[in-house]
């Protein structure tokens, strides 16, 4: 998939030919979103021994404009799961409201029952698939982090088409290209992930966030990071990327001001 949210859900050029953008007329009956407007970039997550680490930066872009620089894209659910949102921010806020009402509904009445991360992911995937089937997509790619029914670490993705998958490490958007290879090096399979310590996992995710900030033009150095374990959620929303080294920048050739 193309990392640019604008291209999500569109037919691939190499398969279907260049896209016909003639839909852009200002009248007609269509009210459904045809493209995301204010967007968040990558979300990263990695499983470890006792849970999952998940992170996303705090930027909401309006095209190439860094429009909102303090948008929290990780959301807690029922103190047991975290959802990370990539893609359209208004759709993220809609989903946030939806999850709020789901949370209230679940907490109401019967005591002791909660939806775990796996249940939550199944539900969200159903919502997204239903919306795409009505040609009215929620333009997001989500990562759901938490624990499954057996109390084991759970991490899965769901996107605007309703596609779902699960893996020891996941990254959305640009992160799928840049961060996922780094995370896969740390946790190539479930077994390796189940032996990772919290520190190792956090370090890998933070390193990946830094790489993304270096190379993703739609990213920012302020980010949120959450650790989900059976003890609960440790969510920090005002982290700053540390120990950046831009020494590599002057090595870059081929564009910019220098000519050679």
């Amino acid at each position: 998939m193309n990392h640019l949210p604008q291209a999500w859900g569109r037919p691939r050029d190499d398969v279907y030919g260049p896209y016909d953008g003639s839909y852009l007329q200002n009248d007609g009956p269509n009210q459904h979103s045809q493209s995301p407007i204010v967007t968040g970039t990558s979300v990263l997550a990695l499983k470890f021994k006792d849970g999952v680490v998940i992170a996303a930066d705090n930027l909401a872009s309006y095209g190439s404009l860094a429009r909102f620089t303090d948008v929290k894209r990780l959301r807690k659910f029922a103190e047991t799961s975290v959802v990370g949102f990539g893609g359209d921010v208004s759709d993220m806020q809609y989903l946030d409201r939806l999850l709020n009402s789901l949370d209230i509904e679940e907490a109401y009445g019967s005591t002791g029952h909660t939806l775990n991360a796996q249940n939550l992911h199944t539900y969200l995937a159903k919502v997204l698939y239903k919306r795409r089937s009505n040609f009215n997509p929620l333009w997001n790619q989500l990562l759901v982090a938490g624990l499954d029914g057996e109390g084991k670490p759970f991490l899965a993705s769901a996107d605007l088409l309703g596609t779902t998958f699960s893996s020891p490490s996941l990254a959305t958007g640009f992160g799928a290209h840049l961060a996922q290879p780094l995370l896969r090096k740390v946790a190539p399979d479930e077994e390796t992930a189940s032996k990772l310590s919290l520190e190792q996992a956090v370090e890998a995710v933070k390193a990946s966030m830094k790489v993304l900030f270096y190379r993703d033009a739609r990213s920012i150095d302020k980010y949120s990071i959450a650790v989900v374990t059976k003890e609960g959620i440790d969510l920090k929303q005002d982290e700053k990327l540390e120990n950046q080294s831009w020494a590599f920048a002057e090595q870059i050739r081929g564009y910019g001001t220098q000519v050679n």
Partner: peptide, 8 residues
Amino acid sequence: NKEHSFYP
């Protein structure tokens, strides 16, 4: 003619 740009 308008066409959906969302490909499902």
